[in-house]
């Protein structure tokens, strides 16, 4: 019986977040808080593995009290239990301090029920780093398997997993001992429309919430802002369109100018693997 922990985060929907042009700060109120879209796929994969191999799925998040909503969303997807660590001491954490705090929570969860597998989304849409998952794996001394786009096999008895890791030009098939940590790509699955029974379960669900004091062997200086090596020194807004440049001339001249603009962004058209174009 597998015990899978999915690490998730509530994030502002960065697709619609608005900037305050004067202060260059984000108007968080303008964007609803949602479950990080990559994490939905992580939870879904955990639920699928549970169905395939039997077991339970716990989700874990770190965040302020309203982040309970994100946990409920995971229950809708099919998770069995939700844990949240919430404390002022966690505030201002970068990826290093975040992976430390989550690791401490996973250690506590493991005491309730040993963890076989940890699944994270590829990255969060507000942090865009993808560093927390591998960080947790290192701290727990598990092999980190990033960019996973397929879980081919889990052998519970012999304790190994076989996954596909997405590469720029394909994928590699990796076998890893368990327990291990996977961070998954969106393409790994489609998150289906949740069943009504899961919706009702989620509506009633209350996660377990822990403060720092509830965790064990915590080295406080490693938490939150204090435990974060990186700091943001400056933010500015990238240029926004405001009635752009018109490209003049005849059709040939216009398309030539357009081509030059595209070539400035040629990295987007890079052929993965560099072995010729196959459009």
């Amino acid at each position: 019986m597998l015990h899978i922990v999915a690490c998730i985060k509530q994030v502002p929907d960065t697709k619609i977040i608005k900037m305050n042009p004067k202060t260059n700060t984000m108007d968080r109120a303008s964007a609803p808080a949602i479950l990080n879209p990559y994490d939905a796929h992580a939870v879904e994969e955990a639920v699928r593995l549970k169905k395939r191999y039997g077991g339970t799925v716990s989700v874990l998040t770190m965040g302020p009290p309203p982040a309970v909503k994100a946990i409920k969303k995971c229950i809708e997807i099919g998770a069995d239990a939700g844990y949240m660590i919430s404390d002022r001491a966690f505030a201002g954490a970068d990826t290093l301090a975040t992976s430390y705090a989550l690791t401490k929570a996973i250690e506590k969860i493991s005491k309730i029920k040993p963890v076989d597998l940890i699944i994270c989304g590829k990255m969060t849409i507000d942090g865009d780093t993808g560093q927390v998952g591998p960080g947790i794996a290192r701290r727990l001394d598990m092999p980190p398997l990033t960019s996973v786009n397929k879980v081919k096999e889990i052998n519970v008895k012999e304790g190994y997993a076989v996954v596909h890791r997405k590469l720029e030009d394909g994928y590699e098939v990796i076998q890893s001992t368990m327990p291990c940590l996977m961070s998954v790509e969106k393409e790994i699955n489609e998150v289906p429309y949740s069943s009504m029974s899961n919706m009702l379960k989620a509506a009633r669900y209350q996660p377990i919430i822990w403060a720092v004091a509830d965790l064990e062997d915590v080295d406080r200086p490693q938490l939150g802002l204090k435990g974060s090596p990186t700091i943001v020194s400056k933010v500015w807004a990238p240029t926004k369109p405001s009635g752009g440049t018109m490209l003049e001339g005849d059709a040939a001249q216009q398309s030539q100018q357009l081509l030059n603009i595209l070539l400035e962004k040629k990295e987007l058209f890079a052929v993965k693997g560099g072995s010729g174009v196959e459009f």
Binding site: M26, D126, T230
Partner: peptide, 17 residues
Amino acid sequence: SRPAFGGNIMATILCKK
């Protein structure tokens, strides 16, 4: 420096210590 928050802002990140 890097784009952050889905490209909504640019941020300069330091690691001082």
